[in-house]
Amino acid sequence: MEIRIDDLTGSKVIALIEEHLQGMSEDSPPESVHALNLDGLRKPEVTFWSAWEQDELLGIGALKELDVTHAEVKSMRTAASHMRKGVARQILEHIIAVAIERGYTRLSLETGSMESFEPARKLYENLGFQYCNPFSDYIEDPYSMFMTKELFR
């Protein structure tokens, strides 16, 4: 698997982002969907990666800087044909490693509270994320769960 910074112009990547946004909208009311669209992912504070095997897109993930010590995991999505193969774990491990390299001391995320998000929450737990209160601009929401991980060099 090759994980590389992506410029968000390829049709396969755009389609997976659209699938991600649609999936979030199916599980949550509009005010509780916090996934970034293409414009949000193209902001300078966001680094976006795609994971590939040859010309096949396996998954995506992003890192958003909140401040000089704190960043957020965004847009984690595995292509449907590659679910349960460890793609998300490898992308998340890559994001964690980059966050540490950049000197962040805390990495946080928002994820869904519904049963469909259970595999994602288990992955985050297995990689050391712990449940926390809302961070940044988030507020308490029955459709959201918040997690954070302290980072050490």
Rank of each mutant, 00 (worst) to 15 (best):
L41Y: 13
S81M: 06
S28N: 15
R4Y: 02
K85G: 00
S136T: 04
S116H: 08
S81A: 14
L16M: 05
F48D: 01
S11Q: 11
E53L: 13
K64D: 00
S116L: 11
K64E: 15
Y131F: 11
V73I: 15
V13R: 01
I17P: 04
G128H: 06
L66T: 06
Y124W: 01
S116Q: 10
F152P: 02
I60C: 15
S11E: 14
A120S: 10
A80M: 09
G23S: 04
V13G: 07
E140N: 12
R106F: 12
S50N: 06
A15C: 08
A120Q: 00
W52H: 07
F135L: 10
Q90D: 14
G128P: 07
T148L: 09
G86D: 02
L66I: 15
I3E: 08
E140V: 03
L123K: 00
G59N: 11
N126V: 00
A79E: 13
Q22M: 09
G61S: 07
D55I: 06
A71D: 11
N126F: 01
I100C: 01
Q130M: 15
G23P: 02
Y104C: 01
T69W: 15
I17Y: 05
M145Y: 01
R84L: 00
G59F: 13
E18L: 07
Y143Q: 02
I3A: 10
S11L: 10
K122D: 02
S144M: 05
E2P: 01
G103E: 01
M76D: 07
A99W: 07
G103Q: 03
D141M: 09
T105K: 12
T105G: 07
K12V: 04
R102V: 00
F146D: 02
Y131M: 10
E101S: 11
V33G: 06
E19Y: 09
E115C: 00
A71F: 11
H34I: 00
P142R: 09
K12M: 08
I60R: 02
G128C: 08
E31P: 04
F48S: 03
R121A: 06
I14T: 03
I100N: 04
R42Y: 08
F129G: 13
W52E: 11
N133M: 08
E101A: 11
L66Y: 12
V98E: 15
W49K: 04
W49A: 03
A79Y: 08
I91E: 04
